[in-house]
């Protein structure tokens, strides 16, 4: 019994961080929107880490799953808004759509791209993301490049007050819940057979195959899980919080890069890493944009390079190294 509880010790610092964030957002005036952005980055990092951190594969097309999730929610809202009996249920349907669509896309992508390794995998996933965007625009799927704007529909079915509260407060709370869930799933995977198999894979894929581990199966599990979370994040942060969807914006490769930066800053393959990375990245960018508007990227780029060279394992990775045997480490993985 004690052992089972101990297994979940590492969740404490993660949840503590979320709890403090939430309190700061609720109680310090002007902080809620910043907290919501930070939560978005946390959720993004956590979700991305499930695949990248555990397998070492770099999915450059990750944003496609967020995009598809956004479309899932948008389609549910625009197509079902006239069914007044639905009420808030429409959001639940939207999440279900987002989850299913992201999972389906990830199965399709996984079946193709997961046969590849290293740089080939990274390039293939970029191809999926860009190709999908051009398919939507070219074949005019889901309104093509006109996209969808659906504040009016949300207002219609939920009422103006509820809709407004949804997009400025509850959406952020849902992002927080997604981040918590993602942390939970990450730890669960780490401590189960999946985690051990994927660690073997990350160290040496060929050796893992020789050892008789069904590498493909576990890769696909991690890939689909990670993609499904991305779909949920998209449905919340980009559909509920941003009541429109335009293809170039939801397939923008920049977000994949941000996810990579967050995970790498904090430490790939650790539980606390994405949270630490998200906070460092989000907070420093926010204050750079306030105190040095227009120069944040110029300052940020060399900092990223320096961090990669000096702390290749990320902040949490480094912490783990320097406090290897202390009790503190029971809380950090």
């Amino acid at each position: 019994m004690r052992k089972t509880v101990q297994r979940y010790y590492p969740l404490f610092p993660v949840f503590a961080a979320y709890f403090i964030l939430f309190l700061v957002g609720k109680n310090v005036s002007g902080m809620w929107q910043l907290v919501s952005t930070l939560l978005f980055y946390c959720a993004l990092g956590q979700a991305f880490n499930i695949f990248l951190g555990m397998t070492g594969y770099v999915d450059f097309g990750y944003v496609a799953f967020m995009g598809v999730g956004t479309y899932g929610m948008a389609i549910a809202i625009t197509r079902l808004a006239h069914v007044e009996a639905l009420g808030v249920l429409i959001v639940a349907i939207g999440f279900a759509m987002a989850l299913v669509m992201a999972a389906l896309l990830s199965v399709a992508v996984g079946a193709v791209a997961l046969r590849l390794r290293g740089a080939y995998f990274a390039i293939a996933t970029i191809g999926v993301n860009e190709g999908f965007r051009f398919l939507i625009e070219g074949a005019k799927i889901w309104n093509g490049s006109d996209g969808m704007i659906f504040t009016a529909q949300l207002n219609q079915i939920l009422g103006r007050e509820t809709a407004s509260a949804l997009s400025t407060f509850w959406a952020d709370v849902i992002v927080l819940i997604i981040a918590v869930l993602a942390a939970f799933v990450t730890l669960f995977y780490m401590k189960s057979k999946i985690g051990y198999a994927l660690t073997a894979l990350r160290e040496d894929e060929d050796a893992a195959v020789v050892m008789g581990i069904n590498v493909t199966k576990y890769k696909i599990i991690a890939f689909i899980t990670s993609a499904s979370f991305a779909g949920l994040v998209g449905a919340t942060s980009w559909a509920l919080k941003t009541p429109y969807v335009f293809p170039p914006e939801v397939f923008e490769i920049h977000y994949t890069i941000e996810a990579i930066i967050i995970v790498l800053l904090g430490g790939a393959g650790t539980l606390l890493g994405p949270v630490a990375g998200a906070l460092i990245y989000g907070i420093s960018k926010y204050y750079l944009s306030i105190f040095l508007p227009g120069f944040q990227l110029l300052i940020f780029a060399p900092i990223i390079i320096i961090i990669i060279i000096l702390f290749p394992e990320g902040v949490i990775g480094m912490l783990k190294k320097s406090f290897r045997d202390s009790t503190l480490m029971r809380f950090i993985i």
Partner: peptide, 13 residues
């Protein structure tokens, strides 16, 4: 370093 590092470093460059 792992692939990820160079991907990100060249992006930052």
């Amino acid at each position: 370093a792992p692939e990820l590092s160079t991907l990100l470093a060249t992006f930052a460059i």
